[in-house]
Design a protein around this nucleic acid. Structure first.
Lengths: 103, 103
DNA sequence: TAAACATATTGATGAAACTCAATATGTATG
DNA sequence: CATACATATTGAGTTTCATCAATATGTTTA
């Protein structure tokens, strides 16, 4: 799928995934914190986290047994700030996720 | 669905619908212009236009036999400008679609 | 008012997506 | 190195969605 915007829209077009991303806006979280908060099973949560990571919206890192997820694409941060809170601004493009910040 | 942001994401999470919205960004268009452009049948196009209107993103007006669709929710305009073109800014909220501009 | 035109709706079909329980994988610890 | 813990994967069941052809609705015009 070449359409970057479409990819983002699809990634956020599901309640479970949108709630995950919102939960991560302020700070990274491990899976064991996320799935009780969004009220889904561990397996469901893991699957949706995988999709969000694959789409480029989230990234993850391991720390001991735990895996922490956080926002990679900061455009999403501003988009949600804007749509959810009716405020927020779009920053200039240099600020955002580029090829160099992948993975 | 109470979640306004989720509603917008869902509305734009489909290639056909996203292409329709992009085609309408500059100027309203009638159905007979839209469906050849996005390369879908008339019926498919009509269905997706209906969903976009129901979600609050588009509005329509009749002129003779033709029905013209255009962008109602201007947040979508800026969102796409931003995501598609890596530029654009978020304007202040008074600018956007409010309860009073519905229908 | 009948025919032509523009759009909407319906019904059928196939594809894609969500969710969960169960199981597998990988990491730390006693 | 065996057990516990954290996360990922698999398989089944269900639902949702997109699309198209055919048909219906509504509007203009001859």
């Amino acid at each position: 799928m070449a359409d970057e915007t479409l990819k983002i829209m699809k990634a956020l077009s599901n309640d479970t995934r949108l709630r995950i991303v919102r939960f991560l806006l302020k700070k990274e979280k491990c899976v064991c914190e996320i799935f009780p908060h969004i009220k889904r099973t561990q397996s469901t949560t893991s699957i949706q986290l995988g999709k969000l990571e694959k789409s480029g919206i989230l990234k993850s890192r391991r720390e001991g047994k735990k895996i922490f997820y956080s926002i990679r694409d900061l455009r999403v941060y501003d988009m949600l700030e804007f749509l959810d809170n009716k405020k927020g601004k779009i920053l200039k493009k240099e600020y955002y996720c580029t090829d160099t910040c992948k993975k």
